[in-house]
Each structure stands twice: as structure tokens, then as C-alpha cells.
Amino acid sequence: MKLLEHKGYYGSIEASVEDGVLYGKLEFIAALVNYEGETVQALKAAFEEAVDDYLATCEAKGYAPELPCKGSFNVRVGHDLHLAAAVKAKELGISLNDFVRNAISTATPV
């Protein structure tokens, strides 16, 4: 799935065949922020306006806007994979957290 990006925020791109519109929402934050447009260019402009409006609203109300992804998350991998990763991390002399961080950064370079 392709995502839109503006000022560090990401948005989805969906289509409603019935309504003949493109639409989306900001991803990776709890606040519900929607946008729509009839063309790709209109959707992109609506997305950027939605991000700007979200940031302006947060500033006007005096609270910090949510950052997409906090930097920590829980992953349920099952006992066997958890144990294998813990053993491998110990063998490498690193923490399990560093082992997982290295695996993710190898798969998804920033």
C-alpha cells in the first residue's frame, strides 16, 4: 500500500467506487483525521490540508500533536521464536531489544 507523507505524518489512499471518490485517514496516530478528493492531486492537497489543520488545532488548544509511532511496541511471536531470539542475542552479547532493533533495521532501512 502506498502512503502519502507530509511533515512526518502518513496517510492512507482508498477508493470508493460507489461514491466515485478517493479518501484516506492519518495513519499511526489515535486521533481520527480524514480527508477526501475526486482526483489524486485533490486527495494529496486534502491530505496536506488535513495535516496542517490537525497541527494548527493542536497548537490552538494547547496540546502537543501525536507523533506517528511512539518508538516502542509489543510483538507477540510465540514461545519458540522468543526463546530462539533471546538465545541468539545472548550469544551475540547484545540485549534482546538490540537484536530485534537490528533485525528490523536490516529489513527496513530508514
Results as ranks from 00 to 15, higher is better:
1 M>D: 14
4 L>E: 00
5 E>N: 13
6 H>E: 02
6 H>F: 09
7 K>L: 08
8 G>C: 06
9 Y>S: 06
11 G>S: 07
13 I>W: 03
13 I>F: 09
14 E>C: 08
14 E>G: 10
15 A>I: 04
15 A>S: 08
16 S>D: 01
17 V>F: 11
18 E>V: 01
19 D>M: 00
20 G>C: 00
22 L>Q: 03
22 L>Y: 06
22 L>N: 05
23 Y>M: 02
23 Y>L: 05
24 G>S: 04
24 G>M: 01
24 G>Y: 00
26 L>W: 03
26 L>R: 03
27 E>I: 07
28 F>H: 11
30 A>D: 11
31 A>Q: 07
31 A>I: 08
31 A>F: 12
32 L>S: 13
32 L>C: 12
33 V>Q: 05
33 V>I: 04
34 N>S: 14
34 N>K: 04
34 N>P: 12
35 Y>G: 03
35 Y>Q: 02
36 E>T: 01
44 K>E: 06
44 K>M: 07
45 A>L: 04
46 A>H: 00
46 A>G: 03
48 E>C: 10
48 E>R: 10
49 E>K: 13
49 E>Y: 06
50 A>D: 01
52 D>N: 14
54 Y>Q: 02
54 Y>W: 02
54 Y>K: 01
55 L>C: 04
56 A>C: 04
56 A>R: 04
57 T>K: 15
57 T>E: 08
57 T>W: 14
58 C>N: 05
59 E>F: 14
60 A>F: 13
61 K>W: 10
61 K>L: 09
62 G>R: 05
62 G>T: 08
62 G>C: 10
63 Y>E: 02
63 Y>Q: 03
63 Y>T: 02
64 A>P: 11
64 A>R: 09
64 A>G: 10
65 P>H: 03
65 P>I: 00
67 L>M: 09
68 P>D: 02
68 P>V: 00
68 P>I: 00
71 G>K: 02
72 S>P: 12
73 F>L: 10
74 N>M: 08
75 V>P: 14
75 V>I: 03
77 V>A: 03
78 G>W: 01
78 G>F: 01
80 D>R: 11
81 L>C: 05
82 H>F: 05
83 L>E: 08
83 L>S: 12
84 A>D: 02
84 A>H: 04
85 A>T: 01
85 A>Y: 02
85 A>P: 11
87 V>G: 15
88 K>T: 12
88 K>V: 07
90 K>G: 09
90 K>D: 15
90 K>W: 11
91 E>S: 10
92 L>Q: 07
95 S>A: 07
95 S>W: 06
97 N>Y: 14
98 D>N: 15
98 D>F: 10
100 V>Q: 13
103 A>R: 08
103 A>S: 15
104 I>K: 10
104 I>M: 13
105 S>H: 11
105 S>D: 15
107 A>T: 05
107 A>R: 15
107 A>G: 14
109 P>W: 05
110 V>L: 15
110 V>M: 07
110 V>N: 10
110 V>W: 13
110 V>T: 14
